[in-house]
Amino acid sequence: MENFEPKIVGFLCNWCSYRAADLAGSARIKYPPNVRVIRVMCSGRVDPAFVLKAFSMGADGVMVAGCHPGECHYIEQNYKAMRRFYMLKQTLVAMGLEPQRFELVWASAAEGQQLAEAIERMTDNVRRLGPLRWAENWADDPQREEALQHIVKEHEEALEVIS
């Protein structure tokens, strides 16, 4: 796995962590270019489906970042993000995903340095793990494809019966 550069999707909340990333930029703090940022209004907006979708599309890691507990712009929605995060993480780990591929980070608008460090840490961890190739594995399994097709067919049949 030489020269492997992981692709990590970062969901950053608009108020704290996105601004932390802005601050890291203004302060010219250097960190690896592997985390690509999607801005959401709140970490609570991060639907578990987004995370699954990111992995299924070929992301090697997903980072969710929000305001520190108690400092949420929306009062307490980061707690809800936290709740979902641990539930989803447990599920993903149970499915065989390495825990380092899915991280939750708190970064206030003043913590550019901390966010940069978190990105660096996560990039290193994921780089060591190697590519996830979830998308490929998914697409490569003909049986799974067949099974899916079967479900679709059944569904269509059922719909026909109803109508």
Binding site: A54, D60, D140
Partner: peptide, 15 residues
Amino acid sequence: ELEGILWDAIADGRP
């Protein structure tokens, strides 16, 4: 946005 941000990963992984 995810599709765009992972365009290269999607391209790599696509059979």
